[in-house]
Simulated scan of single mutants.
Amino acid sequence: MKEKTPIMKILSNLHIWLVLGSFHVIHSQIIQDSCTSSNDLGILNSQILFDTTSLICSNVWSSEGFTLRASQAGPNLWSFVLSAPNSNSYVAIGFSPNGGMVGSSAIVGWVASDGSATMKRYFLGGKTPSQVLVDQGNLQVLQNTSSTISFSSRLYLAFQLITYQPSQQLVLAVGSGNNQPPTPPSFRLMAHRNQITVFINYASGQGDEMSSPYSDLKRTHGILNAVGWGVLIPIGAIIARYFKHVKPFWFYAHSSIQLSGFIIGLSGIISGLILENRIEVNVAKHKALGLIVITLGCLQIIAVLLRPSKDSKKRKYWNWYHHNVGRLLIVLAAFNVFYGIYLGGVGSEWNVTYGVFLGIIVTIALSLELRLLTRED
């Protein structure tokens, strides 16, 4: 074999570097998978079971690296390719009727511990794992077009939906890396690490983050109930128990604060009933506790109107009833406030804020109770 000349060696090395450089560019593009440079899926096209050349790309969730490509493939057929980092858990795209997670139908994909990639349909009937139903929902996926591809530390969910117009309100979610991917036979979906709702224009690929539906009404409902039942009512009870020696201040202060708490709390419960009707979520336990609280509040008002005189023999029984119903109301109301915060998924700030207020109230009540007991002794 003829020995290469120095010029031939240089050209040969240059060719190798060009090939490696081209591979590096493609490899980086696949890992980043951004819409800024190209909409082409590159070497993955051979593994996707439908045409991807006309898909419109959108960086739907930049902070988590989610990229969505979509377009209409026929009169009642839409193509989708969702790309996201492989976080050793699941990635999900939900098509929501109202912008909320609950009530959405979703496509979820993951890579199992044995390396096999899986895609499943789910119906998000609630916020607990038992209410997320596998192989349910209103998404009709065209058979033999779905594929889940793991490549370059990313996960690609490719599927086609039979629909006249898919929802433009998308709920995107990523599972916790600490959780194992769903496993057979239940394929139960555990809580997500992060999620977002976006409104997407399929024609332009423009996607905008959406606020949770009726977020203002949710916030109003929570604040009214926390302030009315969870703060004012306990304060009014403290005044009645520990400040009776300040006459007649304690009675007017107690009555006005309790009435204010009742009216504000009633407004909170009414706003909650309106909210339940609009977003159609299953909050039966929270609603039942709220109705019990308002019932106890109404019974307290009726009891005040029927209060016997101080000289009556029935007064001690009335006092027992009035005091204990009030205590039960306060305990149930505080529990339901925390439960509502949990259901709303509004974050730890709400728990901390209400917990601080409640802690201050409890601390004051314990101090005054200790003082009362000491004085009686």
Rank of each mutant, 00 (worst) to 15 (best):
2 K>Y: 13
3 E>F: 10
6 P>C: 09
13 N>A: 06
15 H>L: 15
16 I>M: 12
28 S>I: 01
28 S>F: 08
29 Q>C: 01
33 D>H: 09
38 S>M: 10
38 S>A: 12
40 D>S: 14
46 S>L: 06
51 D>M: 02
52 T>D: 00
53 T>G: 02
56 I>P: 01
62 S>E: 13
63 S>D: 13
65 G>A: 01
66 F>Q: 00
68 L>Q: 01
69 R>F: 00
71 S>N: 14
73 A>K: 06
80 F>N: 00
88 N>M: 09
97 P>D: 09
99 G>A: 12
100 G>A: 15
102 V>C: 12
108 V>A: 04
110 W>S: 02
112 A>E: 15
112 A>W: 02
120 K>D: 02
127 K>H: 01
127 K>A: 04
128 T>D: 01
131 Q>C: 13
135 D>C: 11
149 I>L: 09
159 F>V: 00
162 I>V: 14
162 I>S: 03
164 Y>D: 10
166 P>A: 08
168 Q>A: 07
169 Q>K: 12
176 S>D: 04
180 Q>P: 07
184 P>C: 08
186 S>E: 14
190 M>N: 04
190 M>T: 11
191 A>F: 06
192 H>L: 07
193 R>K: 14
197 T>V: 14
208 D>E: 11
211 S>F: 13
214 Y>C: 05
215 S>W: 12
218 K>D: 03
222 G>P: 00
223 I>D: 01
224 L>T: 06
225 N>M: 10
227 V>F: 09
240 A>G: 07
240 A>F: 10
241 R>A: 05
244 K>C: 08
245 H>L: 11
247 K>P: 00
249 F>S: 14
256 S>T: 13
258 Q>V: 06
264 I>M: 13
273 L>I: 15
280 E>V: 12
283 V>N: 02
283 V>W: 00
288 A>E: 06
305 L>S: 06
307 R>P: 03
311 D>I: 08
321 Y>Q: 05
327 R>T: 12
330 I>C: 08
334 A>E: 02
341 I>D: 02
342 Y>K: 09
344 G>P: 04
353 T>V: 10
357 F>M: 10
360 I>M: 13
361 I>K: 04
370 L>E: 06
374 T>D: 03
375 R>Y: 12
